[in-house]
Simulated assay, not measured.
Amino acid sequence: MKPLGFRGILLCAVVLLMAILPQAHALVPGDVNGDGRVAIDDVQFALKAALGFISLNSPQTIAADLIPIPGKAGNLYGDGAVRIDDVLQILRISLGLAELPQGSISVRLENGEAVFEWSGGEGTYTITFRQQNKSITKKIVGAPKLVISSSLKYNGATKTFESDYAPFKDFGPDLPVVVSVSSGVEPSGLVGALQFAPLRHAPSEYRRDWLKLDAEPPYTAPAGTITVRGRALQPLRVQAYLTPPSGIPVKLKLQMEDGRIENTVFGPTLAAGSRFSLSFKLAEPGVHMVEILHYTGEAALNQPIYVGGVPLLPSYVDV
Rank of each mutant, 00 (worst) to 15 (best):
T225W: 01
Y316H: 13
A202K: 10
L313H: 07
G52I: 04
P101H: 02
Q60T: 08
S106K: 05
A143L: 05
P22L: 07
K72W: 04
P244F: 00
M256H: 02
R37V: 15
D65C: 05
G184Q: 08
V28W: 00
G297D: 00
L100Y: 03
V185G: 13
A46F: 00
L293G: 01
Q131T: 11
V15M: 04
A13R: 12
P70A: 02
Y206K: 05
E122V: 03
D79E: 10
G36A: 10
K159G: 07
S58L: 14
L252N: 15
Y77F: 14
L76Y: 06
Y219S: 10
L278G: 08
L95H: 07
N133Y: 06
L190Y: 01
L91R: 14
G34D: 04
G5V: 06
E99W: 00
D85F: 10
G142A: 11
S150V: 03
P176A: 02
I84P: 09
G123K: 14
K159T: 14
V181H: 04
L152N: 06
A157K: 12
T124D: 03
S55C: 08
L293V: 00
D164A: 14
S188P: 14
A98D: 06
F45Q: 05
R37L: 10
G30C: 12
G230K: 13
R7P: 14
S315I: 01
E99F: 01
A223I: 05
S119A: 14
L51G: 11
A114Q: 05
L88V: 08
M1C: 11
L47S: 05
R237F: 04
A46N: 01
V191L: 12
Y125A: 12
Y316E: 14
R7A: 14
P173N: 05
P59H: 06
P176F: 04
N111K: 13
L21H: 06
V28D: 00
I105Y: 00
E257I: 11
D79I: 15
L312S: 01
Y219P: 11
I136H: 06
S104R: 15
I136Q: 13
L11R: 04
V14G: 08
P144G: 15
N263Q: 11
Y316L: 13
Q131F: 04
P203Y: 02
R208A: 11
L194F: 07
S188Y: 07
E162N: 13
L199I: 10
Y219A: 05
R207Y: 01
D209R: 12
T296V: 11
V319L: 07
L11H: 01
V319R: 08
R130T: 15
T220Q: 15
K253A: 13
F116Y: 10
I69S: 07
E262P: 11
I54P: 12
G309Q: 09
V28E: 00
V319W: 02
Q239G: 03
R237V: 06
L97H: 12
P311Q: 03
R37S: 14
G184V: 00
L282W: 05
T227D: 06
K134C: 12
G120T: 06
I136L: 09
D86R: 09
G30H: 06
P198W: 01
V287D: 03
S315V: 02
I40S: 12
R108T: 06
S188N: 15
L233H: 09
N302H: 07
T158Q: 10
Q239R: 15
L301C: 09
E284A: 13
L56T: 03
G142R: 09
S151L: 12
I292V: 15
L10C: 12
D164S: 09
A166S: 15
V14T: 14
